[in-house]
Design a protein around this nucleic acid. Sequence first.
DNA 1: AATGAATGAGAGTTCATTCAT
DNA 2: TATGAATGAACTCTCATTCAT
Lengths: 192, 192, 192, 192
Amino acid sequence: MIKKEKITDKKSALLQATLTLVNNHGFHNTPMSKIAKLAGVSPATIYLYFENKQDLINTLYLEVKESFSVCAFEGYHEEMSVKKGFELIWFNIANYKLNQINEATFLSQCDNSPMIDEAIRIEGLKHLQPLLNLWEKGKKEGIIKPLSDYILYAFTIYPLSFLLEMQDRDIYTLNENVKTKTFQAAWDAIRM
Amino acid sequence: MIKKEKITDKKSALLQATLTLVNNHGFHNTPMSKIAKLAGVSPATIYLYFENKQDLINTLYLEVKESFSVCAFEGYHEEMSVKKGFELIWFNIANYKLNQINEATFLSQCDNSPMIDEAIRIEGLKHLQPLLNLWEKGKKEGIIKPLSDYILYAFTIYPLSFLLEMQDRDIYTLNENVKTKTFQAAWDAIRM
Amino acid sequence: MIKKEKITDKKSALLQATLTLVNNHGFHNTPMSKIAKLAGVSPATIYLYFENKQDLINTLYLEVKESFSVCAFEGYHEEMSVKKGFELIWFNIANYKLNQINEATFLSQCDNSPMIDEAIRIEGLKHLQPLLNLWEKGKKEGIIKPLSDYILYAFTIYPLSFLLEMQDRDIYTLNENVKTKTFQAAWDAIRM
Amino acid sequence: MIKKEKITDKKSALLQATLTLVNNHGFHNTPMSKIAKLAGVSPATIYLYFENKQDLINTLYLEVKESFSVCAFEGYHEEMSVKKGFELIWFNIANYKLNQINEATFLSQCDNSPMIDEAIRIEGLKHLQPLLNLWEKGKKEGIIKPLSDYILYAFTIYPLSFLLEMQDRDIYTLNENVKTKTFQAAWDAIRM
DNA sequence: AATGAATGAGAGTTCATTCAT
DNA sequence: TATGAATGAACTCTCATTCAT
């Protein structure tokens, strides 16, 4: 029992260290040696838990993406109305991005660079399916504009990445009041 | 005169080579030696025109950003109505992003990574001033929602980066008809 | 008793694994971890039976060399005539090299590389003493050319290593008929 | 001109250093860093002249093999009688192996290990063709035993490798007189 | 006796940058 | 101005060996 916990300890210490360092310096400016040092292990130890640097990043990506998805759809069920459902999901995502800053920043970096293997990236995309289903329903009901999912995503969820980045750089911070107004913009963009 | 042209030749050959290589392989997978080879010069020559790799990237970034700005505001003058002005600028930017794919991809890469020095990035932002002025006017006239410029940007211009990336990866392509509908989404997001 | 057998079990499993792996991948491409895995034990266990990698190899070398010697002189007794005795030993060795391919290949590899400690190598040579005695007798009787044992060895036994290697690489295989003719060559080389 | 000589200088210094170190410590105990040090250059410089360690070894192998072939067939022409031709070649090779000890030892090591790529090894074999032709002629004339070239090689040329090794280890040295007698053994092995 | 986890030392290789010409 | 040659520093990754259990 103690043993297993310890193992998990080291593996997650490594993942955590990677998250921090990649966020602050980028993938290519994060040598394995620094990850090891921050995690408090020897560089060689990394290779007990991960095949190589790419595998380490991929694993971290999928793990964070998973935690993101869980947050994104928390409290959501398919019987909800389109608007209510979308509102719930949007705020879930917004809160994740603006509160879990480290994780969100990391996902942003990954999604905007060839740092993650294409196959892994695609695997990570599956998590959004419920949102796509919701949009489908909304389009059928004439509530949402008949646009490609890519466009709907681009004008509702993707903008949050920009706001996250602004917040991360201490340029601009959203408070709760503004967040509600921002949701209105997102909803106006895609509603009929 | 001839001499100066020649110099310019080499410098811009280097910038062009950098653009191509960074786009295709990323900043850290683009060694100076390859840039030199593609530009047809010796690695040492790069250092006659640029201080170091970072300076080369910064210079390229500012140059491309400048060309982007010129496009963005082509045909625009401050007497235009808010809606007309915004429409013009939005389509200018959309066309730039979807047609000048190389330049746009490069800007996207830079804006989404710590590859560009913060100071330089801020300098690049100044170019958008006319758009910010337009929004200011729109807000005063009650045409545009009273939101921070960052939010307005996030929900109108920034989404184009996502669509550019989709197009770049051959996942989704916008035709003219859809582009018009997409503009509608952007406008709906920020109009009162 | 059971205990001792078990120990022997593990030790010989390790030796066997080493033989296989070194034959297939060479000394330096055979990590201790792979030896352990193939033998079904932990890497640390190796060090209960052997001081280090070098000791493991040395031990294996001497063991195989011993089995080789047993084969080489099977059925031989000093009362035999020089020719008969030499013929017996030569065929014994030839059959060993061409049939016990794994062991023979391993010996060949060891003998042709600085992989084995010099002291150990010399110890392994002692096993050939009966053959050297036979040659001594042959020289005295005027049946065998008065050449150094090194030369006699070089032109009778050593060539078999080359043929073994050819066979190992599927380049050339000796059948029984050719083997007899080959013995004739060996004998002609050293007989008066 | 000076420049080209310098280039050749460094490349051949590297090849020479490799020869020495591989001879003394084996391929896998010869790190690139030591090769560089012995050649008086930086490790990175090696990669200006060779693709990687394997390429360095391959190049050296082919170069030495070439010099060996030149020696082996010096003074030989196809009009010679079988015996005279064989004698010439055999002594050429013997002298090479016993005098150019470094080169010969290196070739021996390469030929007896998977250190050289198979394709390169095959390329190196072509050099022996004149000897094979000579044997063919000898077999037709009924002067040489009708045995496979592999066997003829094993009992005439290959034994020299053993003697070379003995000499290299200061165990046994051939003088001119003995060398002649040794030739007799080689010739007796394959003549009718 | 036996182990899985852990590691320090070192391997091959790359690259931004410099220097002699 | 322009260069090809050269390099020191740093990278990722491997492995013989050890240690706590």
